[in-house]
Design a protein around this nucleic acid. Sequence first.
RNA 1: GGGCCCAUAGCUUAGCCUGGUUGGAGCGCCCGGCUGAUAACCGGGAGGUCAAGAGUCCAAAUCUCUUUGGGCCCA
Length: 1397
Amino acid sequence: MIKQVQANYNPAELEKRVREHWANAEVYRKTKELRASGPNFYFVDGPPYTTGAIHLGTSWNKTLKDTYIRYRRMQRYNVRDQPGYDMHGLPIEVKVEQSIGVKTKKEIEEYGIDRFVSTCKQFAMDFQKRMTEQFKELGVWMDWDTPYLTITSQYVEAAWWTLKRAYDKELLAPSNRVLSWCPRCETALAEAEIEYRDEKDPSIYVRFPLKDDESTSLLIWTTTPWTLPGNLAVAAHPDLRYAKVRLSSAEGDETVIVLESLVEQVGELGGYEGYEVLDLIEGDDLIGMEYITPFLGDVEYQRQATGKWVHRVIPSSTVAAENTGLVHIAPGHGPEDFELGKEFGLEPFCPVDETGRFTKDLPVRYAGMSVKEANKHIIEELKERKLMYSVGTLTHRYGHCWRCDSGIIYRNTTQWFLKITQIKNLMLEEIEKIHWTPDWAGSSREYDWTVNARDWCISRQRYWGIPLPVWTCQCGETKVVGSITDLESGNGYRKDMELHRPWIDAVTFKCPRCSKQMRRVPDVLDVWFDSGVATWAQLGFPRSRAEFDRWWPCKWITEAHDQTRGWFYSQLAAGCIAFDRAPYEAVLMHGWVLDPNGQPMSKSRGNVIEPEKVIKDYGADALRFYLMRTNAPWEDTSFQWEGVKNARKTLNILWNVVNFATTYMSIDSFEPGSVSLEGLKAALRPEDRWMVSRTEKMKGEVAKFLNSYELHKACRIMEDFVLEDLSRWYVRLIRDRMWSEKGDLDKLAAYKVLHEALLSLTKVMAPFCPHITEEIYQHIDGSLESVHMLDWPGADTTRLDERLDQSMATVQELVDLVTKARQSRNIKLRWPMKRVVVRAANNDSMEVMKQLESVILSQANVKVIEYIPPGQEWGEIVLNAEPNPNAIGKVYRQWASKIAVLLKSRPAKQIRDCIEKGSYSLGIEGQMIKIEPNMVSFTSSLPPDVEGVKFSGGDLYMDFEITQEIEAEGFARELIRRIQQMRKDIKLNVEEYVRVEVKASAKLIEFFRVWHDHIMSETRCRQLEFVDSPKGDHTASWEVEGEKLHVSLTSLHFKQAMDELLTINGLSQDGALALIEAGHRSLTDLRPLSEEQIGNVPGLPKADVKKISHYLERADEAIVPSKDAAKPQGGMAKEALVPFLLRVPRMNQVKADMLYEAGYDSIDKIKAASKEDLRKVKGMGEKTVDEIVAYASKGGFEATIKCEGCGALVPPDKMTCPSCGARVSIESLVEEEDKGGAHKPALAPEAELERSFTYLIKEEKAERSYQLFEKALAKGMKGFCVTRNYPLKIKAKWNLGETPILWLSNVGKESSIRPKDLEKLSVSLEQFLAQSEGGVILLDGLEYLITNNNFLTVLRLVQSLRDQVAINRSILMLVLNPSTLDAHELNLLEKEVDATI
RNA sequence: GGGCCCAUAGCUUAGCCUGGUUGGAGCGCCCGGCUGAUAACCGGGAGGUCAAGAGUCCAAAUCUCUUUGGGCCCA
């Protein structure tokens, strides 16, 4: 069944409602169950890190995931969608440190590792919950109830198992190396944990004097002075040429060795003006040269250091031709230095402790000083000791700890490594097997990163992480625990123990070799390793294999490009270690959401835009649509509010189209399932077939782009479909058809096509915008509980019609051209155009035009289309022959002017035809004159008022000739517009009456006379006169289409008098006007008049005369309202009731009898019964009860059904069609009913409305109210309807007879009342109440009045109306959509009325 | 310093792979229309050295190279 949607698209409310529906009906669970038997699709969620609220990038990430999960489900895949959270690691430790106010590891240990770790866990859990809520707000469907968390024992076990695998394959081993180190966190860092940013550092050139010749120095360059105490060698490139050079200046000279090519540069830097190359030395020959290291005297280690290469020049081909070409080597302070040191037997001397301070290996003046601090002291000291050649500063990129931002240092320690270098080739092969989108994400980026990868240091000297499962013994024995079972043999193991530090540290093993105690290496794992095992950890592997065998490996993942070094990599490495293959098969690498200026969003920049804010303002669907529409997924998106706004606008237009469709379809009770497109084939207009074709094309393209991950293109296809095809074209074309007779096939065809288009769009859009599509689906179909349970709609290529598509494009172009031409000539679309002439480019295009002629006629507002067959000229084009006197004169001299005259007088076409064939001849004075092509040129001119233009279908001529009729109507409208403008200018009340005097040409006045009445009614004019000199309150002159208009306008000041007179109950507007025009402008004026005198007022309707007298007599009588009438008790005979009951789905004779015997002897009683009540009746099952309630609340007992066989109407108490005898089928209503959830309207307790009562009827959409109203009317009561709906629609839908309908609208027509004008509304209502003793008023749309005024004002109106109703023994029904008010207001309203329904 | 990606109107972008009339849209701006989708909707207009430079070609937004700026990932 088609249900009309709410008039306005309100995403906040809609999305909340949809999510409630999902929750209440357990739609997510049911959808998964529906697909349980489909092919498996293992999706793995890259776990976000639980350290803050989600940002827009996370929103995009989850949106992409959700979209594809939904899409795959629609394709019937059984998708595994467990969300994950990454919950260990330094970031959380840092946050917790801040919250408990500690800074160092020492302080943490004082605080207690157990307390610290518990706090970390709590912190992570809190954020996990918070983030989950935010993801739900986005409409993401994942298995939120059972996420995988990296902190569970199951997860830890999987990580351990993986490390054990690595150990067994000799890929896990401790190693002493120089690594990046964070001095604040006091732990080693992996490459992935270092962030680079610009920083200023000293840039110093230092003299290393040669041992054999201290007057000559090697010049080295460094940005880290603090590494100089650790210097053990200098590296030179063996293949480059160096120079020994004397640098000189006025102040002295010195001799240094630097790279030859850098001599000049170095000299300048040292402030020298001249230089002399003393010797050129090949790098090779420098090798072995001994120098004096700067801290030789001070540092015990340096003095003691032994080795062939200590304090000598060593060769290295990594030395670059920069700075001096000589590189200071400190093997304890740099990875490359370390490697070189290993090669040349230099120990990694590292006088720096874990907090980044110098150790006691250095003299007291440095010991205990942080290296950063030491820099300036070292610089000073080197200056004093004349070893400093030059000091400067340099801005360069320097590594920082990813969490605390401290500058990293390099230290030499022993850490545990995964030997990536040994499995690199396998990893590279696997990268090539994975399907990457875009392909360079894999072939370039991931490949490049992996090629350069080094062994992965996975040990961290911290607390909150997966414990390194390595136990060691003093004797050197090592044990790696690969499972909880392995752990059970340890001392201190307790069942189900917490596997985190410090608890795990208590577990020890007896060494199998020496029987001493083995203790755990106290490190925890690099948190980047955690997520690497996600694909098997979440399946419970290795503890259980079943899930693993069923799902693994993962089919698809999607994350941002920063995960190249992150999750893409960690999974690849872990997978290759554990299973010798990549754990995922396909990757979509997406971009980042940058701020509006293209900068990454970060707290430190202060440019973070929160997704919640965006959702609050525009809705999750708009945000999702924006994110996916704006860019290719793999490109960064610079976030723009405008973009989201625009997305919302698109959705709004879609909503409006749906509103349009459902309005008419629901009025006509259109059943899309009752007809097929094939069945309607004969009734389809060309534009319908066009729409059908467009729909199929759209479906196919969306699928195509989804498959290629070009979501932006898919979104644009859908957007174009909504805006261009539906809203701007098809809806425009079919609008008129909506108003034709019910059951008209032509209309039915439009309904069906529009419905099909909307349903198809809803389906393909469902993965992108899950909320709005759900709401639309439930209104236009709703046969399943959710749009997300539907199958993906394949495109029906047999319905494609490329040619028609092309034709329509041509027609659209034509209409556009006409619109454009109208605009440039200032001819409005509402002035019909006399004709257009199409000169078709070919037969095909002429056919096209003819086929779609009706479209052109209506959309271009043209009276006639004329066609000129291809190849022919339009007969009305005038061809002119223009003689060229110059050319003619040269040949025929004296005859030239005569020839010219003759040429002009002959038919130009004939001349041209002959010339085209060869030549044209004239005879003058017996001479044959031959006209050569150069002697004449041709011009063509169009008839007056015709404009010609080329278009893709040929040539188009538009005839703008304005006939008398067109002109008359046009000018009348112009005058109306001018008068209305003048009314506005003097700020006249829109309801005030005026007198208008017009001076214009005789022609215009003639036109105006034709339209006289129309002009008056459109402008609330009581007197329209044509005079020579218009006079009045306000005069103006206008120039319209070359005509002069002088208009004067005078307010008749009727408004106030009208208002006063209309307080007379029942007095008509015309009556009031008549009184005023007769000079009776107030109630006081009327009092002295006799009934006869009143009767003599010209133009006063007889009925009004009575009302006035009545009013004058009644004065202030008070009538006490009676509220005590008993409610009706209508029982029905069993035989009468049962047939009604039998129409309820699931009902049968036995059940119906039982119901009756249980006391439900009337329809009303059944309607009033709650589910609980009905359940008490013996034999009533839950499902049956649900059906009864659903049936009753949908008005089933009152509804007729259209017979599928013959179309006749079947009354509500019949099961067979009275006309053809076919049995009607009743479908279950329960599913639809459940959907609304919270807002189920209360059922009307009685069928009869009580006189003198005011009712408040709470309905989402006024249905029941109108039924009650109809009933009251049927009993002969006079009715009065006030509604914000369009009156004709109401009339079409309900049988209201001649009942007056007052339209609440800002349109400003006579039959309408502006919603702000409560005064007028109350006057009209009171008037009705007074004139019809015992009438019934339906006031539909109370919320509209409330939003346009304020609540209390409306409440006062309700009070006064209620009293009037009671006095007049009438009935007032106030219809209200309860969801638009808050509870408090609703309460107040309910107090004021006599009964609430 | 290296790898990858990006650069088109004030903003967001299509077109580039496969070179070819006048580089399309949307938003914003200006002007207008409609008032039976109306807290909407529709039309028109102005606005572009296609980041800069060089090359290939009859022809370059498109292909190639260089430079500049931005993003990510690394040294």
